[in-house]
Design a protein around this nucleic acid. Structure first.
Lengths: 290, 290
DNA sequence: CTGATGTTGGAATATGCGTTTCACACAGCG
DNA sequence: CGCTGTGTGAAACGCATATTCCAACATCAG
């Protein structure tokens, strides 16, 4: 039996497949060895080129690749390709990120109605969102954001509804660090009046997610008009608070049963604050020395 | 001329396309803007999912995506997808797995001076905290907490300083779900007066971490004296707000460079809210049926 | 209100894909 | 030398996909 279709014990990750190939390499036929080499050497190509392209690149027939995949227990070559795609998405964080995302979505798709393991879903979803955050927000963005805070004479913070917790955290923490901070909390309907005091040397940190609160959008526009810098934390690069911003930090929150989370945003906010804390302390010690 | 097929000056890289979208975003039609947002926000999906999947994810017809691509000068949507795939490749370009791990470890080892290092640490720390949360908080606890909320006539929510974001999130979300909620926000120093209205059929949700804010502790004591139930979210089972509580949800937050996080607490709060949402909707439908 | 212009959704179409099939090549063995 | 079983290549198949097309719809100027 040359082609055993035992889907059961097929390698479930790119790394597992790699080791499996190395084990069985000697027992493979010449052509299959040729493919094996290519699979080991060019995981990227395997991930996102079509079978036709791959087969041409390594001088093999498409059917041979299908045979190769089957000999390792996959129903077809596509399923094997998926492993490499998942690996590509995962970056260097956890293994099998892509697969976990898919698995997670599938699990959530069906309605268990248990209500109790909602927590488990959130833990999983937020974990994924955090991993994603670490990968999508660049070092440069963080550095620039910290610089914006550092240079500002006064930091204004605004965020309503769902964004309010994030904004309040930012305001509270910055104040704790002795940064001159004004939290636009909307109490007594004084939002506009509070924003109107912003000036060209100040920074407005605006937090808003879809659907974007009117007050926040207005605050951003007003701050921009008055010449202040704007740092936006949002879920889209084209959100109403992103256009006029000097810098946009893009957060993709997990969404569980139509409820979007905030854990990733809180995480980002906190990283921002602490990044600023270190920058500030460094500057201070430098000033003392000089 | 709605669809000009000018392949000549189409953006040649993912970044170019991004800026091109941002430029022309306002002049796009509603549906095309919807797609633009997705393209900007989910480059990974754009890279390796099929048109059918993408169109479903952002609630659009496949043909609309083709139109979008054509409006930016591509002959079809596939050509646009290629950009993102190439970008994905260059992003992780050539880094072997071992090399990536090494790079990551080096980044964590050195003292954090730029923001991204801090972010990476937080992502790691919060991930662990989330996992821990999933393991330590039992289903029974969650179910009981939900029951407490469900039975309460009015839910009072209190939390100051670092706990304020969590409390404000709880208050906002419960209110959204049409639960009668009173957020004790401490505005105008009316904390005591607000708590004094609590009664035996009400619930106080108190959020507090070390060092425990006086006002929160007082609020818990007062609520307990007045015969109300108390649900405490805290970092210790013997904290001042735990003693008098009907139920304590124990959250162990991650601590990075002496700054404690909030991601796990937010996660718990959200799970709580959604657990309640399901319980409420189930109850409602049951009432309708009976 | 009306017509013109641009936009949208969904069925129809055609292309390209992965997969299967089958004939052939080749080695092992009687 | 012929038979058998396995590996291989090329073409055919079926299918999913991207794409096209057209009718219905929204928008807006006059």
């Amino acid at each position: 039996m040359t082609e055993e279709t035992m889907t059961a014990n097929a390698p479930a990750s790119a790394d597992e497949l790699r080791t499996a190939i190395l084990e069985r390499y000697d027992s493979l036929s010449k052509r299959l060895q040729q493919i094996a080499r290519y699979v080991l050497d060019e995981p990227n190509e395997m991930a996102l080129e079509t079978l036709a392209v791959i087969s041409e690149r390594c001088g093999v027939q498409p059917s041979a690749i299908v045979r190769f995949a089957k000999s390792f227990g996959y129903p077809g070559a596509s399923q094997m390709q998926r492993l490499f795609r998942d690996g590509l998405l995962s970056g260097h964080a956890g293994l099998g990120y892509g697969e976990r995302v898919r698995h997670f979505n599938e699990a959530v798709a069906k309605k268990p109605e248990s209500g109790a393991d909602v927590l488990a879903e959130f833990v999983e979803g937020n974990t994924l969102a955090l991993q994603n955050l670490g990968q999508t927000v660049s070092e440069a963005d963080m550095a620039n954001a910290v610089k914006l805070i550092d240079k500002a004479e006064t930091v204004y913070v605004v965020g309503f509804r769902r964004s309010f917790p994030v904004a309040s955290y930012l305001a509270y923490s910055l104040q704790q660090l002795n940064k001159r901070t004004l939290f636009i909390d909307g109490v007594a309907g004084l939002t506009k009046q509070q924003v109107q005091t912003i000036g060209p040397r100040d920074l407005l940190i605006a937090v808003s997610y879809h659907p974007y609160a009117e007050e926040t959008v207005h605050a951003v526009e007003m701050a921009s008009q008055r010449g202040a810098r704007v740092l936006s934390i949002s879920d889209s690069l084209v959100s109403p608070i992103a256009k006029a911003a000097s810098l946009v930090l893009h957060v993709r929150e997990s969404e569980v049963r139509t409820f979007r989370s905030l854990a990733a945003s809180i995480c980002l906010a906190q990283a921002l604050v602490i990044g600023f804390a270190f920058a500030a302390s460094k500057k201070k010690s430098k000033a003392h020395a000089g």
